[in-house]
Amino acid sequence: MILIYCELAENGHVADVSLELCTKGRSLANELGTQLAALVCGNGIADIEKQLYPFGVDKVFKADDRRLSPYRTLPHFAVLSKVIEENRPDIVLMGATCVGRDLAPRISSYLRCGLTADCTSLEIGSYEDKVTKKQYDKILYQIRPAFGGNIIATIVNPETRPQMATVREGVMKKEVVDANYKGTVTSLDANKYLRGEDECVKIIAREIEQQKINIKNSSIIVSGGYGMGSKENFEMLHQLAQALGGEVGATRAAVDAGFAEGDRQIGQTGVTVRPKLYIACGISGAVQHRAGMDQSGKIISINTDPEAPINAIADYTIIGDVCKVVPQLIACYNKNKK
């Protein structure tokens, strides 16, 4: 069994990242010839399974109790750890969100099993332990950039189960497999799972901020890196984005340098995007950044360095000074629009 721990968005729907994992989970389950299961913990989630079936979920576990919403670590830990112990899934996948990155390591510690954070790809394959010569078949390859993005590591958990991984939103594609897919639902009695001491952390206030920046759903992204040089120079990317009707993205280096807000960060530890057009300005193209944008339709790179790694995945490269090229692009666009 492959189990997806599903998160709920503020509107009570299953979060996109969880549906993306269901889609990936379905294809992995087909490859392994096993079932896909999903766990939802929340409050007032009567028909939640109907949102999950179309993604090919065979078995929905749900725990519906006021103590399970909003999310708190210990009540969700109590339910998820027991569901894993009772059903022994081979693979457990979770979103690499504030929730998943809080819950998954606690589960992995409790079950003493391996966990890989922020995977950019998941595959099934075999593994031979070089020391024991033991052969393992059909195990999960958890693939992620590592060490400053200079390498791509394939991680396996040969001996321990479940094999656990977290994946960021947008990395996997969300796809309905069959609108009429039918699974089964198991309602869990929360009282059997939750203990009094799980209540020891209390939420006394929550301020949910409307997301002001929506780069994920933008079809055109103008993105800047450390090579933009300053916050002032970054401003011209906003002008270009505004002209084209797009959004502004940034690399981690640009965010760390204070050129752009953290919400704009694209890459392995930021948002993953697939716009129609991605204009990379002053971005060298570390692998963590590319992991967040290499599925873009068309990529234009503007950089003074002809050897910048970003150029290797670009459709168009403009070797030149961004501060000159960007205003020229705005002028060209305005001229052609007329």
């Binding site: 003493r112 099993c113 391996g114 966990l115 890989t116 593994y127 332990d129 390859y141 950039p145 590592a146 993005g149 200079n150 390498i151 791509i152 590591a153 394939t154 991680i155 396996v156 958990n157 040969p158 001996e159 321990t160 692998v287 790694p309």
Partner: peptide, 11 residues
């Protein structure tokens, strides 16, 4: 350590 590195690829 349950996690093992199967391989490291240069980018």
């Amino acid at each position: 350590s349950p996690t093992k590195v199967k391989k490291i690829d240069n980018v």
